[in-house]
Structure formats: C-alpha cells, structure tokens
Computed example of a mutant assay.
Amino acid sequence: MVLVGYFSAKQKNFGGLMASAAQELAARGARVAMQIVQRRGVSDGGVQKMSLPYSSRTLLSYGKVREVAQACGQANADAVIFVASLTERQQRVLTATLGRPAVSLSDILAAD
C-alpha cells in the first residue's frame, strides 16, 4: 500500500507522524511500499496560497494526486491510506481516481 500524508508547514514533526502511521499499519500486517507527503505553505508560493482553499474533492493538489497514482502503479499497491481524515466524498473521488481503495488511517484504527 501507499501511505499519504497531508501536513501544514506548521507541523514540524510530519516525519515522525508518518513513521508512526507506518508502524501502526505494519502492526496490523500491512506492508507500506511507499510514503508520499504533501506539505502546504512550505515554499514562498505555497505560503501565498495558504489563504486559498485546498482541493476539497481530493485533499491533495492535482499534481500530488498524479504522483500518488504513479506510485501506486509502480508499487502495485492494493490501497492508499491517508494519515489525514477523509470525507466520504473524498474517499469516493480518490478511490475512483486512483483505481484502488482510498481510506483514512483513523478508519482503519477505528475498525480494530
């Protein structure tokens, strides 16, 4: 599977959060083949866009969604797990766009 994180530039420990999420998934028998992070507001251009809404349809930028889709194909991933919570609409759109289930880590942890 591919693990995806979406973090604000204010979140300094995003690497630790990604590692923790990967450990939680591994403890449940999942194999994280790739990790992808989108940080918002890191670059000068990104800081200027912080007041603009992110994509409410996919949570990620269009380019990052393409990157995730490519990573899924390369890793032959059977699912995409998002560290951030997804709305039902985001889950539907991302599942259709990526061609594999897109779910929130919180949904997986809640199922246990």
Results as ranks from 00 to 15, higher is better:
residue 42 V to C: 05
residue 40 R to N: 07
residue 72 C to Q: 01
residue 10 K to V: 11
residue 12 K to P: 03
residue 61 S to F: 04
residue 49 K to M: 13
residue 67 E to V: 00
residue 60 L to A: 03
residue 17 L to F: 09
residue 48 Q to N: 08
residue 29 G to C: 07
residue 70 Q to S: 13
residue 101 P to V: 06
residue 82 F to E: 05
residue 70 Q to E: 15
residue 104 S to A: 15
residue 109 L to H: 03
residue 104 S to R: 04
residue 66 R to H: 13
residue 14 F to M: 09
residue 66 R to K: 15
residue 80 V to L: 04
residue 60 L to Y: 08
residue 99 G to P: 01
residue 80 V to S: 09
residue 104 S to V: 03
residue 73 G to D: 11
residue 105 L to Y: 10
residue 90 Q to P: 11
residue 18 M to T: 08
residue 98 L to P: 08
residue 75 A to T: 12
residue 90 Q to L: 02
residue 8 S to P: 01
residue 82 F to I: 05
residue 18 M to R: 01
residue 60 L to H: 00
residue 88 E to T: 15
residue 104 S to C: 06
residue 38 Q to N: 04
residue 88 E to N: 11
residue 68 V to T: 07
residue 20 S to Y: 14
residue 85 S to P: 03
residue 47 V to K: 15
residue 53 P to E: 09
residue 72 C to T: 08
residue 60 L to R: 04
residue 74 Q to F: 14
residue 18 M to W: 05
residue 86 L to H: 01
residue 72 C to A: 13
residue 5 G to K: 02
residue 51 S to L: 09
residue 31 R to C: 07
residue 72 C to F: 03
residue 63 G to M: 05
residue 25 L to Y: 09
residue 69 A to N: 09
residue 25 L to H: 02
residue 24 E to D: 10
residue 89 R to T: 13
residue 70 Q to N: 13
residue 100 R to N: 01
residue 27 A to Y: 00
residue 60 L to W: 00
residue 50 M to V: 10
residue 107 D to C: 05
residue 16 G to F: 03
residue 37 V to P: 05
residue 53 P to N: 08
residue 12 K to F: 06
residue 16 G to T: 06
residue 101 P to Y: 05
residue 32 V to R: 02
residue 74 Q to E: 14
residue 108 I to N: 10
residue 84 A to F: 00
residue 34 M to H: 11
residue 99 G to H: 02
residue 40 R to A: 00
residue 70 Q to K: 10
residue 32 V to A: 08
residue 39 R to F: 09
residue 40 R to P: 01
residue 51 S to T: 04
residue 56 S to Y: 02
residue 74 Q to R: 15
residue 54 Y to Q: 10
residue 24 E to A: 15
residue 39 R to I: 03
residue 112 D to N: 10
residue 65 V to A: 03
residue 90 Q to S: 11
residue 8 S to E: 09
residue 19 A to T: 09
residue 3 L to H: 04
residue 26 A to W: 07
residue 104 S to E: 06
residue 82 F to K: 02
residue 58 T to S: 05
residue 64 K to Q: 07
residue 46 G to M: 08
residue 84 A to R: 12
residue 32 V to T: 13
residue 85 S to R: 14
residue 8 S to N: 12
residue 95 T to I: 06
residue 93 V to S: 01
residue 44 D to F: 12
residue 105 L to R: 08
residue 65 V to G: 05
residue 21 A to R: 01
residue 26 A to P: 00
residue 100 R to T: 14
residue 46 G to S: 05
residue 78 D to S: 15
residue 35 Q to F: 01
residue 50 M to A: 13
residue 72 C to S: 10
residue 103 V to P: 06
residue 4 V to Q: 02
residue 66 R to F: 06
residue 50 M to Q: 13
residue 101 P to W: 09
residue 82 F to P: 03
residue 64 K to C: 04
residue 110 A to D: 11
residue 93 V to A: 00
residue 72 C to Y: 02
residue 82 F to Y: 12
residue 73 G to H: 10
residue 14 F to H: 13
residue 9 A to P: 04
residue 89 R to C: 04
residue 110 A to M: 12
residue 104 S to N: 05
residue 49 K to P: 00
residue 8 S to Y: 00
residue 101 P to A: 11
residue 73 G to K: 10
